[in-house]
């Protein structure tokens, strides 16, 4: 554990808490892509199956349980409790266009051809593109609530901080996981346009609106 990894995890945690708070306080999930949230639930469910096969640390297990449970709660809130506020008309990204190619790639490019390892790889690849339905939705509506922008900034920062963590681990521990690093870089790059808008607009007190 290094400082980048720790801040990255905390940023990830903050993102999820922000999203849940937004939904709970406003009793609404307007502006949030349910499809991205389904993908995140799938990401956690397929990645953390090792909860049952390996114990790494109390921190590790607690965080995994937190991510799995909160992602399920988020999906529940969106599709059941606050379903009336869900903006399905703008959430039209086709999930099969992500899940099918990512599944195929996980079969072809992995560290070890075993069920758990393929599911872990699937999860890493899927996470890297899971935000696309959300970004697609924002590009259709042309805007995002400020709290949603904070959520996305925290969520995007998490993987960017993991990249610094991997640089650190490469130099000081000789650790290098090509699959995680490439997918993490792809994931971070997808957020760059949003990061730019966040810094130039939201941090200056303006609402995030996309150029027409």
């Amino acid at each position: 554990m290094n400082i980048f990894r720790l801040i990255g995890d905390m940023s990830h945690l903050l993102a999820i808490v922000l999203l849940l708070l937004k939904m709970w306080k406003t009793r609404s999930c307007a502006g949030i892509s349910g499809k991205s949230q389904i993908l995140f639930a799938l990401v956690f469910a397929t990645r953390y199956l090792d909860l049952f096969t390996a114990f790494i640390s109390a921190y590790n297990s607690t965080m995994k349980l937190f991510f799995i449970s909160t992602s399920l709660v988020t999906v529940y809130l969106m599709y059941f409790k606050f379903r009336a506020t869900y903006d399905a008309n703008h959430d039209t990204f086709r999930l099969e266009f992500l899940v099918v190619p990512v599944g195929g790639l996980a079969f072809l490019v992995n560290h070890n051809f075993s069920p758990l390892e393929i599911l872990w790889t699937f999860s890493i690849y899927l996470e890297s593109v899971a935000i696309l339905p959300q970004l697609f939705m924002m590009s259709k509506t042309g805007e995002a609530e400020t709290i949603t922008s904070h959520y996305l900034f925290a969520l995007g920062s998490y993987r960017a901080l993991y990249i610094l963590n991997w640089v650190f681990r490469y130099y000081f521990e000789g650790f290098f996981d090509l699959i995680a690093v490439v997918a993490g870089c792809v994931q971070t790059i997808l957020y760059c346009d949003f990061f730019y808008l966040y810094i130039t607009k939201v941090l200056k007190g303006k609402k995030l609106s996309l150029p027409a």
Partner: peptide, 10 residues
């Protein structure tokens, strides 16, 4: 094992 090197990460 070797393939689980990254699994301490979340």
């Amino acid at each position: 094992d070797e393939t689980s090197a990254g699994k301490d990460e979340l």
